[in-house]
Structures are given as structure tokens and as C-alpha cells.
């Protein structure tokens, strides 16, 4: 019984903490009768907080790298993000160029650091 629950626990967490709090907004979208003003202060604030939460998750992945990424030195990880972002801006906000240059910077740096 407890073993079965142990196997199910990650799925329970997925549904309760991932699926439901995510899907509920799509459902609300279906039942909200009127349009929402994209420029209203509340929407701007919510979007800013959502962006900052995601930015925080991104920063933590770079700084406290999971798995094999932790083998690459911290300075190289941070440097590669900065170089990639610079390339993204230089290439008129091309996500592809930014990601490609960031990856090349990471691999070159990791290789040079041995």
C-alpha cells in the first residue's frame, strides 16, 4: 500500500501542484464572458511577477546547476549566458542565434577549462 503510494506520489504532486493550478486559468478563460484589458494594471503586475518567478528559476539553474551541468565551472556557465544574451540582442532578438552562441560559448569554455 505504502509502496504503491510511493510510486504515485510524484503523479499526485504533478496533478495537484502542476496540472490543476495551470489548467484552471485556461478553464477560467473559457467561462469569462468579457474580454480582459491586457493593459490593466493588474494584468501588467501579474505578468511582471510571472516573468520574475521564471527568471529566478532560470538564474538558479545556472548558478546551482543540476546534474552534469555542475561539472562546468560557475564562471563559464554565467559567462556563456551573458555571451548568448549579447548575441541575442545583436541579432535583433533572435532566440536561435542567442541559444546557439550561448551553447558554443559553454562548450568552448568547458573544453578550455579541461
Amino acid at each position: 500500500m505504502s509502496a504503491a503510494f510511493g510510486d504515485l506520489a510524484p503523479y499526485l504532486a504533478l496533478v495537484l501542484l502542476g496540472f490543476l493550478p495551470n489548467e484552471i486559468w485556461r478553464f477560467f478563460g473559457l467561462i469569462v464572458a468579457h474580454g480582459i484589458d491586457e493593459r490593466s494594471d493588474t494584468i501588467v503586475w501579474v505578468r511582471a511577477v510571472a516573468t520574475a518567478i521564471l527568471a529566478g528559476v532560470i538564474a538558479k539553474i545556472v548558478l546551482f546547476a543540476p546534474g552534469t551541468l555542475a561539472d562546468v565551472p560557475l564562471t563559464i556557465r554565467v559567462g556563456a549566458v551573458i555571451i548568448g544574451f549579447g548575441a541575442f540582442l545583436a541579432a535583433r532578438r533572435s532566440v536561435f542565434v542567442g541559444v546557439a552562441v550561448g551553447e558554443i560559448a559553454l562548450m568552448t569554455g568547458a573544453w578550455a577549462a579541461g
Binding site: W25, R26, G29, V32, I36, E38, V46, A50
Partner: peptide
């Protein structure tokens, strides 16, 4: 908080 942005997308 991160998923609220889905609401205006569905509505529009």
C-alpha cells in the same frame, strides 16, 4: 502565478 498569463490568451 506563472500560469495566469494563459487566461487572457484563451479569452482572446
Amino acid at each position: 502565478l506563472s500560469a495566469v498569463r494563459l487566461l487572457p490568451m484563451v479569452v482572446s
